[in-house]
Amino acid sequence: QKTLKYAHFQPAKDDQPKHVAALAFKEHVEKATNGSIKVEIFPAGQFGKDQPTMEALRLGTLEMAVAHDGAIGTVHKPIGVLGIPFLYDNHEHAWRVYDSEWLKGFSDDMVKKTGIRALGFADNGVRHFTNSLRPIQTPADMKGMKIRIQPSPVFKALVESLGASASAIPWGELPTALQQKVVDGQENGVTNILAASLYQHQKYATLDGHVWSVHGYLVNDRFYTRLTDVERKAVDEGVKKAMAIHRKMTAEQDKNAKKILEGVGMQVYEPTAAQIAEFRKLAQPPVRQWAEGEIGKNYVDALFKAVEATRK
């Protein structure tokens, strides 16, 4: 019998997409392999924080993980291309990109460099700006705002291209920092805005959807290739099932963002297509240029090719 340790970073609750997906994966795999694989789930970062989890995947100390792009970036920088803002038209468009040939190219490269295989990508929520000063309708409204970012140069480039100043603050200190107006605003998906009750100190939300964060379904390649055909098929199908749940639950939240955020008392603005275009015009070229220089033109081009090919 093989043990498949499966780590993710969400609390073990049944309203958490990544945990529900993990449970579905476990059920499918254990059943489809007749118990030849035992799945042990380590939720809520129990197995470790992001970088050590990724390294454990490389070492084979951990067999599978569902990890956000920031975590993946600690061992494989090219994931950063997904941080280029304003890439997709809607969820379905993003999913078509994730499921396209691009995945195989990306994954093969990652296997070669890290020994980790990406079996697929699901959403980590579309990121929006919130702040405590005024409604952001156009980039001009962001002038001079202090926006919290994760300590990542991509987001620094993004926020600064829109005329705001970027302040790197750890996630754990964010609620306090917002309450105390250390920064005026921040950018996150709906899940995170709810999870840390950020709405308590952020009156305005703008559903600009600048970046589509992802979660990668990752497996240690050595473990994966040594599975029997039946087992590998079970894992592949388990991931498909899990991702379907994961995408659906997250997208539901994303698509109801206005209602959800208004429900917790925020004033929500949905930019028009023209305003989004204005955001894109300012933010995309500098970040794309940054990515081409820092990550590699081939990675950026491959992604843009997939984005254009799947646009309907």
Partner: peptide, 9 residues
């Protein structure tokens, strides 16, 4: 009005 973003790391 801005912080040095590499300080934390």
């Amino acid at each position: 009005n801005q912080s040095i973003f590499w300080v934390e790391e």
